[in-house]
């Protein structure tokens, strides 16, 4: 007998040989996402008097490689809400499955009517809790999401939630590069909630298309094929294979300081 309680009742090396404990460690330490892998770039959205317009291009990049060119980053949730995902595409697909389960559960418990459906603000609150929980567990879902739709008060609703669980709402919103390039263009049109009431669907669609164009000009991880959705009380119109129109690259001539053109 010795003084190591841990040793009591254990096979001794000098009699049984060295004990191979390698099999005891079966799993590696759990790993969490520390950085996104395949990513989508900006999502832009703006409110108008009867609803919300939201758009995102169809590109999924692998670093600087344009890896997948037909990834739909807008997702319809029941008849009142569209979500736009920026950031990690696999996390987007996970959230998509999560929301699908929620939708199935909701339809199962009260299928027959629209009134008790989850509306845009319900969904945004739910997503924000999911995102905040995951960041608190140090296992974030690497996305910045825009939630566009109609609220339970039948008003246009637009809000955002990111990988930290930060939430905010504004007449116009954009994620990623869009926050720098598209937001100023949209804020000119809708500086405050009051201005939203004077904006028609056509105006909103036009400014969103203009923003997508500007982003394509300046964001290297963007593409000219995009999806656009209009959400109003009448329902959701979603077009997933749009192409940017009326591009003008004339401004490029005047850009100095790149490539062969030094001054």
């Amino acid at each position: 007998m010795n003084h190591f309680p841990q040793a009591w009742g254990r096979p001794r090396d000098d009699i049984y040989g060295h004990y191979n404990s390698s099999y005891l460690q079966t799993a590696n330490p759990t790993q969490h996402t520390q950085s996104p892998v395949v990513t989508g770039t900006s999502v832009v959205a703006i409110k108008y008097k009867d609803g919300v317009v939201i758009a995102a291009d169809n590109l999924a990049s692998y670093g600087s490689l344009a890896r997948f060119t037909d990834v739909k980053r807008l997702r319809k949730f029941n008849s009142s809400t569209v979500l736009g995902f920026g950031g990690d595409v696999s996390d987007m697909q996970y959230l998509d499955r999560l929301l699908n389960d929620l939708d199935v559960k909701e339809n199962y418990s009260h299928a027959d009517d629209e009134a008790s459906q989850l509306s845009a603000n319900n969904l945004h609150t739910y997503l924000s809790k999911v995102m905040y929980k995951r960041r608190t567990d140090f296992n974030p879902l690497w996305n910045h999401i825009l939630v566009a739709g109609i609220s339970s008060e039948s008003e246009p609703f637009l809000a955002s939630v990111d990988l930290l669980g930060t939430t905010f709402s504004s007449p116009s919103l954009a994620t990623g590069y869009g926050a720098h390039l598209a937001q100023p263009i949209m804020r000119k049109l809708v500086p405050d909630e009051e201005a939203v009431k004077g904006i028609s669907k056509e105006q909103a669609v036009d400014v969103v298309k203009e923003c997508m164009k500007v982003l394509f000009y300046r964001d290297a991880r963007s593409m000219d094929g995009y999806s656009i959705a209009v959400i109003s009380k009448e329902g959701i119109e979603i077009k997933e294979n749009e192409k940017l129109e009326n591009q003008s690259w004339q401004f490029a001539e005047r850009i100095r300081g790149y490539g062969t053109q030094v001054n």
């Binding site: 418990s109 008790s116 319900n122």
Partner: peptide, 15 residues
């Protein structure tokens, strides 16, 4: 209210 920003439907709480 917390997780969904929604008043719980009465059919649901009853169930």
């Amino acid at each position: 209210r917390l997780n969904y920003d929604r008043a719980i439907p009465l059919a649901e709480i009853t169930q």
